[in-house]
Amino acid sequence: MIRAVGKPIEEIIGMVQDFNKLLIAGCDGCVTVCEAGGLKEVKVLAAALRLYFTQAGTSKQIEETSLTRQCDKEYLAQLRDSIDGYDAVVSLACGVGAQFVADMYTKKVVFPGVNTSFMGATEERGWYVERCQGCGQCILAETGGVCPIARCSKRMLNGPCGGSEAGKCEVAPDIPCGWELIYERLKTLGQLDRFEKPVTPKDWTTSRDGGVRKILREDLRV
């Protein structure tokens, strides 16, 4: 799932201070799961903004909502009747959702309320780690189910580099070396023969290098 973290309140105050009628819009999808942009965080942010602006002697109208998904037009359309009542929207959805709000309501100012970070898993509550970079051509079958692109800091296809120490990546001691993990996994699976075969350069056209990516599913289109 997509992982995000809330922006610092000071940054949000800086963005919205010149606007009087604000809608804080959460999303019930990924950002709810990682507790960055669901209804709960919408309420917390709205309360903090109200408090700040009241203490600063400015009165602002701050409303709260959360949509099933901000990355689907059908749910975004639910704002159609009320959107004109606001000067600006603070979207607590990921960057995709925030852009979709701006796409649909072209005259509204839309601010991001979270920093969208990566696609990752919940290791433990409050501890999320990246697992996939959406390269568009998944090679997990060859690497023992551990992604070298997301989990090696140098996205090596023939790791590990010389910097791993005690199984940790040279970039930080709290990052397990992805290639040490791959080696151990291949060993467990009895596939170590794969490890010594050089992997040829990757075709990055399906990754971000190929330009803006899209999927066209003829079978799903009406």
Binding site: R155, G159, V199
Partner: peptide, 9 residues
């Protein structure tokens, strides 16, 4: 960073 290739490649 780039890392289009790695050392082996």
């Amino acid at each position: 960073n780039v890392f289009d290739l790695d050392s082996v490649q």
